[in-house]
Design a protein around this nucleic acid. Structure first.
Ligand code: ATP
Length: 1023
DNA sequence: CAATTTCCGCTTTTT
DNA sequence: GCGGAAATTG
């Protein structure tokens, strides 16, 4: 056993695992086996040094890390021992201690945990009440900032008293802080910081609680804040036997008050502390490590440390430029498919991760995955438990668990509607204040008639309220008769039933109630799985101090609720869902994990480093962490232009990947040659797939897909060629996506033209040289984009002037470059059932073979539409304006990427996630979800103007207003030039001329990337 | 007074 | 594309 435990370890790791020193710090770079060492050490202590698992505390920072560690330990020492360990996040371990001993320091039994939204609403209420000018968000983070540093209301007051100029803002802050703390106390709630702080209080007052602790082990120690540091000392106080592992370079939780200095502090405090360094990296290919090293070396304050590779060099990391974030998503999806298909089973979906800086960046990738049929799971994004229907149920449970929790009770008091409004709640709250009673009790008394609110409740609301009270009380009674393990799920079922939740959801969310009901079912399933957790959360009994007598059922419920608050995501149940999935995760939640293939999209300045980040070094470390997650393949990418949300402004590549590092990267993803595949297999310590396997995999690549990363030009221009019908599920007409430069524009007069100016090597601006009212054309637009990109070279390697039409593509190049597998592949290829045209001539559209359908052809193929002019008996734009629909255009969403001022697109109307009611339903105009031509005045389609040809002009209200003004002064003639994106030379004239003038756009608003008064995100609030 | 509708502003990272 | 505030309707 001992041998097998140590077998997979190098000498330094072994030394750390078996070390007998009391205080041990293992400091090492990523991938050096820190976690493995820590886990082995726990196993070693249990198996060979006779430590009792009940007396070993193991702390991690994230739920995922603790789960991972539990699993690894189960494999090493068996469930018997593993389940007895005190293992979890700091917060969850603290919760257990407070639940067991909290009453000893005056924490009432059955305390609840305030999650961020509870804290937020409490702070908000206080701010409103006191009319304090403070952003709830900032107030909340300041409170947390202080609490994480042991600063209390009292200490802040003392500080303020000492300072010469008492600032009002500080006083306000203290007021909010004080009221917030009072509010938590009155509701018997602890927030995240309280869990730690109160546990420190507890252990200081009652060190006996941890008298049994023989060893304390902490993972990712660089992320401790000083409260956690204090906890470390207290947890270990009986024996002072501590092992921590960490890496200062991976400190990414500074925003949560983590202090890297704790490492030094610890060395100073425990004089006998021994440091062991691990050096070899066992995770990543050499090329990836070199890039990682160069990135982290930019931090000059950092002591020089080198990453030592144990693997071959492997494929160069990829730094890929793409036109915009939508196409970046498409690229990732197509790469995922390509990687899986070309590596002969070596790499599967589960081996791939997409790591993003911010949660919202996931949506594009998710959409692209969905449409490409790639299974994925998103971790730590929009949280399951934050969904309205889930929160509602959870708030019911919280009320059932603890009716005195005002926050929870107020959240449910009028949901579903009980005709209790603002005023009614106000008067109830007043009574609650006066009588120092929780609102729940107040309501009971009011209903019994022993209290009378200022504002008398209406009869129906009184009835509904008494029903609510009885629901809660009945649930509490029922709970006692249940099996503890079943309490959460049974209670949920009860709540769902008595509230007629299904009907309620159906009514409230007409559009997507099915999803919501599914969510509820998922919650029930999650609750039923609770059983497993409960045993591992029990603390051992310690001589000399009694634990709280716990009511099993109550405890089961509280544990369930705590887990919801302290976790953030539902664990994917591997049993039900063995389907391998690509992981999409934030970089933060990916810490400590590894994948064979890692994508890091959107590495632009403003995302990494985030525009609001205070600490650039931490942002750099974040990129470092992301890079070092990759084992064999690393794909970094960034969009040259932001999405419409970001005003289509140009992005700069992150400063953390300056040009001087680009030689460490390739500008496109590798072709999977035999030697690359062999390298990947070696790095992953997997078997190299046979040529036959590889050939087999290749057959899954469809005609329209390439075996090379050659769908997008290397310099970030949009892909030309066949329109990808990914987003609209099947059809976009011909080449309607972007009109190619058309000779008819050359003669067009009055068109605003763009001139691109290089302002620096890294940025550019486009300036408009003509102020004529008129329309730019798609071709014009296209040319200006091209000019721009040509001037905007980001890499030394020359970009090809156009997509490589002559270069061997797809399977052909595969054959020419992979002689060893070529024959097998060729056979497999010809054995394909539907052996149609070769790749280059298939959907190749404009590039080879089939001519794309011209837009005019497409348009004439459109079914005839009822015209809005006919419907309203006028063609006066002013009169028609009120009839414009006022929702986001679904087809626009569907086409996502392509809309820009002056562009012309053909697309399909239909509902894509539009929830809002529409003044003018599109279906009404186009009952068959027909094809339409869209003219974009701007990239923000809040209004549409239909003309009698069934064509739609899209723009903001502002665009239309301006257009109307300009149009009146200078009525454009009905020629090509009066039509935005007039690429359809026939769109008006050939069909009798537009009855409605398509309103001209103010040219100033048409500069690429500048939409009206829009200010890009990263420049908005940099206060 | 409550419910519904519309409009506005804003999106770091986690326990 | 959402939550919250303001405006409007019931
Ligand atoms: N001695 C070893 N021989 C072979 N492989 C090893 C060895 N030690 C660790 N590994 C492997 O290296 C990889 C990284 O290990 P681990 O996750 O423990 O590193 P880490 O230092 O915790 O990384 P990070 O700091 O990124 O969390 C794992 O796949 C692990 O199995």
């Amino acid at each position: 056993m001992e041998a097998s435990l140590l077998a997979g370890l190098n000498p330094a790791q072994r030394a750390a695992v078996t070390s007998k020193v009391p205080v041990l710090q293992v400091l090492a770079p990523p991938g050096s086996g820190k976690t493995k060492t820590l886990t082995s050490r726990v196993a070693h202590l249990l198996a060979h040094r006779d430590y009792n698992p009940q007396n070993v505390i193991c702390c991690t920072f994230t739920i995922k890390a603790s789960r991972e560690m539990r699993e690894r330990l189960r494999a090493l020492v068996g469930e018997q021992l593993e389940s007895k360990l005190i293992l979890g996040t700091f917060h969850s371990v603290c919760r257990r201690y407070l639940a067991a001993y909290g009453t000893k320091i005056g924490i009432a039994k059955g305390f609840g945990i305030a999650d961020s939204s509870d804290s937020k609403s409490i702070v908000k209420r206080i701010i409103k009440e006191h009319d304090i000018k403070l952003e709830p968000q900032t107030a909340r983070s300041k409170i947390s900032w202080n609490k994480a540093r042991f600063r209390t209301v009292a200490s802040l007051e003392a500080e303020l008293a000492k300072s010469k100029e008492p600032a009002q803002s500080k006083q306000d802050m203290i007021t909010v802080f004080r009221e917030y703390e009072d509010e938590l106390k009155n509701n018997n709630l602890l927030d995240y910081d309280d869990l730690l702080l109160r546990c420190v209080d507890l252990l200081r007052a009652q060190p006996t609680c941890v008298a049994n602790v023989e060893a304390l082990l902490i993972d990712e120690f660089q992320d401790t804040n000083i409260v956690q540091y204090e906890l470390m000392k207290l947890f270990a106080s009986a024996r002072n036997h501590i092992t921590i592992v960490g890496d200062p370079d991976q400190s990414i939780y500074g925003f949560r008050s983590a202090e890297i200095e704790n490492l030094k502090r610890m060395q100073a405090y425990y004089r006998d502390a021994v440091v062991i360094n691990l050096e070899e990296n066992y995770r990543s290919g050499g090329a990836i490590l070199k890039l990682a090293q160069d990135v982290i070396d930019q931090d000059t304050a950092r002591p020089d440390k080198k990453l030592k590779s144990t693997h071959c060099h492997g494929a160069l990391p990829v730094l890929r430029r793409l036109p915009n974030s939508f196409e970046e998503g498409l690229w990732i999806a197509s790469e995922v498919k390509r990687i899986i298909a070309s590596t002969g089973g070596l790499i599967g979906h589960a081996d791939i991760a997409v790591l993003i800086r911010s949660g919202y960046l996931s949506s594009r990738v998710e959409k692209a995955f969905t449409n490409a049929g790639i299974p994925y799971r998103m971790v730590g994004g929009t949280r399951f438990f934050d969904r309205a229907e889930i929160r509602l149920i959870v708030d019911y449970l919280r009320t059932i668990s603890h009716p005195d929790n005002n926050a929870a009770f107020l959240a449910i008091i009028n949901v579903p509607s009980r005709k209790i409004g603002e005023k009614a709640i106000e008067s109830l709250a007043k009574l609650s204040e006066e009588h120092k009673l929780p609102i729940f009790r107040v309501v009971q008394k009011v209903l019994a008639g022993s209290l009378v609110p200022e504002k008398k409740l209406s009869k129906p609301s009184e009835q509904d309220l008494s029903r609510l009270i009885s629901i809660i009380n009945k649930a509490r009674d029922k709970m006692e008769d249940m099996q503890p393990a079943q309490v959460p799920s049974r209670l949920i079922e009860y709540v769902v039933e008595v509230l007629h939740l299904q009907a309620y959801l159906q009514k409230k969310y007409k559009d997507d109630y099915e999803d919501r009901i599914e969510n509820v079912q998922e919650l029930i399933a999650y609750a039923s799985d609770m059983t497993v957790m409960s045993t591992t959360e029990t603390l051992p009994t310690v001589e000399g101090i009694a634990q709280e007598q716990i009511d099993q059922c109550q405890e089961a419920l509280d544990q369930f609720l705590a887990n919801i608050v302290l976790s953030s995501e539902v664990e994917q149940d591997d049993k039900d869902d063995p389907k391998p999935r690509v992981t999409i995760s934030t970089i933060h939640s990916a810490k400590g994990l590894e994948w064979p293939v890692v994508f890091i999209p959107s590495v632009y300045d403003g995302s990494i480093p985030h525009s609001r980040a205070e600490d650039t070094d931490e942002e750099r470390r974040l990129l470092y962490v992301a890079i070092t997650r990759a084992q064999a393949l690393l794909n970094i990418s960034f969009p040259l232009i932001g999405s419409r949300d970001q005003g289509l402004n140009a992005h700069d590549l992150t400063p953390f990947l300056p040009e001087s590092l680009h030689y460490r990267t390739a500008n496109k993803a590798p072709l999977f040659t035999d030697s690359i595949i062999a390298d990947i297999a070696r790095i992953l310590r997997r078997e190299t797939p046979s040529p036959a396997d590889i050939a087999q995999g290749v057959t899954s690549i469809s005609n329209s897909e390439s075996l090379e990363d050659d769908r997008w030009p290397l310099d970030g221009r949009p892909a030309l060629g066949p329109e990808q019908d990914i987003m609209t599920g099947g059809w976009i007409v011909g080449a309607g996506r972007l009109q190619p430069a058309d000779s008819s524009f050359q003669s067009t007069q009055g068109i605003a033209s763009y001139q691109t100016t290089m302002t620096s090597s890294r940025s550019f601006s486009t300036s408009n040289t003509s102020m004529n009212a008129g329309f730019t054309t798609a071709g014009q637009q296209m040319r200006s984009i091209n000019t721009m990109h040509q001037g905007h070279t980001l890499q030394d390697s020359p970009a090809p002037p156009a997509p490589a039409t002559n270069a061997p593509r797809g399977i052909q190049s595969f054959f020419s470059r992979r002689p060893s597998a070529a024959e097998a592949a060729r056979q497999a290829w010809s054995a394909r059932p539907s052996q149609s045209a070769p790749v280059s001539a298939s959907k190749g559209g404009g590039r080879s073979g089939t001519q794309p359908q011209s837009l005019s052809q497409s348009v004439s193929n459109l079914p005839t539409m009822p015209s809005i002019s006919d419907r309203h008996g006028t063609s006066d734009p002013q009169q028609l304006l009120p009839h414009l629909s006022n929702h986001r255009l679904p087809a626009f969403n569907a086409m996502g990427r392509a809309a820009a001022p002056g562009r012309v697109l053909t697309g399909q109307t239909g509902s894509v996630g539009v929830k809002r009611p529409r003044p003018l339903p599109l279906e009404e105009l186009s009952p068959n979800r027909s094809k339409r031509v869209y003219h974009f005045l701007s990239s923000s389609p809040t209004q549409e103007l239909f003309d009698e040809n069934g064509e739609v002009t899209i723009g903001t209200k502002e665009d239309f207003d301006t257009a109307m003004k300009v149009g009146k002064q200078n009525t454009p003639s009905c020629g090509t030039n009066s039509h935005p994106g007039g690429s359809t030379k026939d769109s008006g004239t050939e069909r009798g001329g537009p009855a409605l003038q398509r309103p001209p756009v103010d040219p100033r608003k048409r500069q690429l990337g500048v939409r009206g008064s829009f200010v890009p995100w990263n420049e908005r609030k940099r206060k």
